[in-house]
């Protein structure tokens, strides 16, 4: 039986986590290929609908990652993301989707190593968790 390889979508902000991902690349920090980035200007513009759609369309997990608290390029967009993600995690559980499939992290522009580590750990965690429960529903 081959190992389960999850598909993970990451909504990352342009100023911090996307830049950190660039730095991880420039520093040649090997990462699992499972995580694919969607660049947003700020995590504050990540509509919960995007996350739900991702989870219903085949993603096994969603990562939302922005600037550290207080460092947001747009003053406080990351705080708004934090509230939305927290609420959405509560709702996901009620729909039978494991809360761990939605993760929020803060990775600053200079933290390429943090990005690579976060990606690796998330893939490991979701691999252990198995395929998304919602995938079967969505394809019925």
């Amino acid at each position: 039986m081959s190992q389960f390889e999850p598909t993970i979508v990451a909504f990352v902000c342009n100023w911090c986590t996307y830049t950190a991902a660039d730095l991880a690349g420039t520093s040649r920090m090997l990462q699992p290929y499972n995580v694919k980035l969607i660049r947003m200007m700020c995590t504050g513009m990540v509509d919960p609908k995007y996350i739900i759609r991702a989870l219903l369309s085949g993603a096994d997990a969603v990562l939302v990652s922005g600037c550290h608290p207080g460092d947001c390029h747009y003053i406080n967009g990351n705080y708004k993301a934090r509230r939305r993600v927290k609420l959405l995690q509560e709702m996901l559980a009620q729909f039978g989707i494991d809360q761990r499939r939605l993760k929020l992290t803060w990775i600053g522009a200079s933290e390429g190593n943090d990005f690579a580590r976060t990606v690796a750990e998330l893939v490991e965690e979701i691999r252990a968790l198995g395929p998304n429960e919602a995938r079967a529903v969505a394809t019925l």
Binding site: F4, T7, V9, D47, R53, A59, G130, P131
Partner: peptide, 21 residues
């Protein structure tokens, strides 16, 4: 964003992956 998301997830079929256990 929806279009990007769907392009990302639908372009290639994922190999069928058995759920462990």
């Amino acid at each position: 964003v929806f279009a990007e998301l769907e392009g990302l997830l639908e372009a290639l079929p994922q190999p069928p992956t058995p759920r462990p256990g």
